[in-house]
């Protein structure tokens, strides 16, 4: 790109230089009114020998006068001089061919490069657009997957919570039932223990009373009878 710009700038500079150089001869072809009159006088003197001879010949004088009057006429502002047309045309042609030779390829190359670049940029833009669309699609798919996964996670969590709730409820019910059973067992055990204690106390009181009654009522004969019974029992084996 920079190289193309430098080539175009160089061609424009060369064209300007040629215009200046070729314009100089054109400018030199123009002449002043005095110069034109002097030139006409010199031309008349060389042709007729001297100006005096021209002044004496009325016809020659009128021709010189006419020629000098012609010097008073201004050049056309529109129609250039012939030599100027020739130089200008030559310069134009040179410049034209130079531009065709040097500038056209550069301009065509730059335009082609520009077109290629625009095409490349368009392709890149299309590719980027395609990629963006793909990324967008991927993101949308990922977002949809994330939403689905989030919904699944929520469902799983809800299911786990329900399961945990059910387990805790069942465990609590089991514990309550176990506590009731244990409490009933403890109550039964306490009742049984109380009955046993009461039975023991009653039996202790009764047996103690019986021992006292026996101890006070067993006279010697009764004691002797018990000894005899014991001996008989030992003898029977």
């Amino acid at each position: 790109m920079t190289r193309r710009i430098r080539q175009i700038a160089g061609a424009l500079g060369l064209t300007g230089t040629l215009l200046v150089l070729l314009a100089a001869p054109a400018a030199a072809s123009g002449e002043s009114i005095g110069g034109c009159a002097v030139e006409a006088a010199v031309h008349a003197e060389e042709e007729y020998g001297s100006l005096h001879a021209v002044e004496e010949d009325k016809k020659l004088f009128e021709e010189l006068e006419k020629e000098m009057e012609g010097c008073l006429e201004a050049p056309s502002p529109i129609i250039p001089e012939v030599d100027e047309i020739i130089w200008g045309g030559a310069a134009f042609l040179v410049l034209f061919f130079f531009m065709v030779w040097k500038g056209m390829p550069a301009v065509q190359g730059a335009m082609k490069d520009r077109a290629d670049k625009i095409a490349s940029d368009l392709d890149a833009a299309d590719t980027a657009k395609s990629d963006a669309a793909k990324i967008k699609a991927d993101h949308e798919a990922a977002l949809a997957g994330a939403k689905s996964e989030a919904n699944q996670i929520i469902e799983d969590a809800r299911a786990q919570a329900d399961q945990l709730k059910a387990e805790l409820t069942a465990r609590a019910n089991e514990e309550v039932a176990e506590m009731r059973t244990r409490a009933a067992a403890d109550a039964d055990a306490a009742r049984s223990q109380a009955l046993n204690d009461l039975r023991g106390d009653v039996s202790e009181i009764a047996i103690g009373a019986a021992e006292r009654v026996i101890g006070s009522n067993l006279d010697r004969d009764a004691q002797s009878a018990l000894v005899d019974a014991y001996i008989d029992e030992v003898a029977r084996g």
Partner: peptide, 26 residues
């Protein structure tokens, strides 16, 4: 012993006492 007899022969014991009967009853 309250009544009856307890016989000890070495480590052997033949208990026919009222006390042992009361103990068994208790």
């Amino acid at each position: 012993v309250l009544g009856g007899v307890i016989t000890e022969i070495g480590d052997d014991v033949i208990d026919g006492s009222v006390r042992s009967r009361m103990t068994q009853l208790r």
